[in-house]
């Protein structure tokens, strides 16, 4: 057993877990943050993606101990109160989800893609091909991806506007 200290969605937490515990199980089973999903056992589906210190990672492919001392953001931590994050709003407006199983991982990966391209100075000009390519680690069984890609491109515009306003 080890004590793992994290900042999750801005709140300091400390959990006592077996060393073999994966980060995703700390989030779901110990902190009751069940928005982060587990969709595979091969690290391929991306349903478990969260942000660790600002980067999109697969929480099913990380021991809790590896995350000790880090700051983790989950799907529960991105809205501002009742106001959805622009990526969440764009998924809703563009019908970017059906069953919703892949959606938390899609949204966390998509936010990472948009932030990365904004910060790399491409002026937020994400194109469809880039979005499709960079969502390769997230599998959706329902939508056929078209509306997910539309949502990400829509959100890229909204996030740029939001960034400029700040």
């Amino acid at each position: 057993m080890s004590t793992v200290k994290l900042t999750v969605n801005g709140k300091a937490v400390s959990v006592d877990v077996e060393d073999r515990t994966l980060l995703v199980h700390v989030l779901r089973d110990h902190l009751n943050l069940t928005g982060t999903h587990v969709g595979c056992d091969t690290s391929q589906c991306g349903a478990c993606v969260v942000h660790m210190d600002g980067k999109a990672v697969k929480s099913c492919t990380m021991l809790a101990g590896q995350a000790d001392g880090s700051s983790v953001t989950t799907i529960e931590g991105i809205a501002k109160g009742d106001e959805l994050h622009p990526m969440q709003a764009a998924f809703r407006d563009n019908h970017g989800l059906q069953c919703g199983y892949c959606t938390p991982g899609m949204i966390m990966s998509a936010i990472d893609i948009v932030q990365r391209h904004h910060s790399q100075g491409s002026g937020g000009q994400l194109d469809e091909a880039t979005v499709r390519q960079e969502l390769e680690g997230n599998i959706c069984r329902c939508t056929g991806y078209h509306n997910i890609v539309k949502a990400v491109l829509d959100a890229a515009g909204r996030m740029k506007v939001a960034q400029a306003a700040e």
């Binding site: 690290s43 991306g46 993606v49 980067k55 999109a56 990672v57 697969k58 492919t61 990380m62 990966s109 990472d112 893609i113 990365r116 960079e134 390769e136 680690g137 997230n138």
Partner: peptide, 8 residues
Amino acid sequence: GDPAVRYR
């Protein structure tokens, strides 16, 4: 791999 694999 994919972006999440490349980060780690």
